[in-house]
């Protein structure tokens, strides 16, 4: 650790350092980093920033941390972490930052500047994401035995899905559950409409591809990993998230088909 870093640590108040450490953990967790990663990064940062008796308890949607202030009092922070969209490039950057902190190459002011920068980071623009969603839908449609024609329709459906998620969903502030139901409803209605005007060979395959970006792969994987780390509480939170998301897709798709059947008399073509 060089002299400059040492000096800046001494200059910075204990409160400020404690805040920085919790913020680091919060950022890792909210962008989709693992729980143990958040925990370890906080422990390393606390050691380097000379926070006495630092201890943290991290679960899927919250951080509880304590440190000894002035050598006498226990100070604690409770940090609520909402379930947010995954932004993996930020996790990667935070991981690099955490390495640098642990190596003693990063003072508190630099950490704050880096956190400010990373919190705004994005690896792809909205247009790229919408396009990617279409490509993802199309390739999964093809993977599940769809024809190229199906894949093309699934591409359009995937684009519609992400247009809805990025532009329409934030305006109507609804819960995650309603958002997922609405999104799958919209996309399933779109598929039905496209299919009935003659786009695509198999409705089933188009739909499977189209709803794939909504499928709960992430909460399922994270939940399993939490269970393996003996963190049953976080595992349960994420397992419920996974099952609810799957249920929401089912309800949305089912409702859309019912509506379409009733409206058009059950004949697709």
């Amino acid at each position: 650790m060089n002299e400059e870093v040492r000096r800046s640590i001494e200059e910075c108040s204990q409160m400020e350092r404690f805040n920085l450490v919790t913020r680091l953990g919060n950022d890792i967790l909210i962008n989709g980093g693992e729980i143990f990663r958040a925990n370890e990064a906080m422990q390393y940062a606390a050691r380097v920033l000379r926070l006495e008796g630092f201890n943290a308890y991290v679960i899927a949607n919250g951080i509880f941390s304590t440190a000894i202030i002035d050598g006498r009092f226990y100070s604690s922070r409770i940090c609520y972490v909402r379930l947010a969209p995954i932004v993996l490039c930020r996790v990667d950057e935070l991981n690099h930052l955490s390495r640098r902190i642990a190596a003693g190459k990063c003072g508190p002011y630099e950490i704050r500047a880096e956190l400010d920068r990373i919190e705004k980071m994005e690896a792809a623009g909205n247009m790229t994401k919408i396009f990617a969603s279409g490509i993802g839908s199309a390739s999964f449609c093809y993977l599940f035995m769809g024809s190229f024609f199906d894949a093309f329709t699934a591409f359009l459906a995937g684009v519609v899905l992400n247009l809805f998620l990025i532009y329409a969903a934030p305006r109507i502030s609804v819960s995650r559950i309603m958002r997922n139901i609405l999104a799958s409803l919209v996309v399933a209605m779109f598929c039905c409409a496209m299919y009935s005007v003659g786009m695509g060979d198999s409705l089933d395959r188009i739909m499977i591809g189209a709803v794939f970006p909504l499928a709960p792969g992430i909460p399922l994987t994270n939940s399993v990993r939490n269970f393996l780390e003996n963190d049953y509480l976080s595992g349960l939170i994420r397992l419920v998230d996974a099952f609810l998301t799957a249920g929401c897709i089912a309800v949305g798709v089912g409702a859309a088909m019912r509506i379409w059947f009733t409206a058009t008399g059950g004949i697709f073509r």
């Binding site: 993996l88 792809a124 790229t128 990617a132 993802g136 390739s139 999964f140």
Partner: peptide
């Protein structure tokens, strides 16, 4: 298709 699909999802998650 699996390769392309996975890359597309990695863009969605800002890898």
């Amino acid at each position: 298709a699996a390769f392309v699909g996975t890359v597309a999802f990695s863009v969605l998650f800002s890898v």
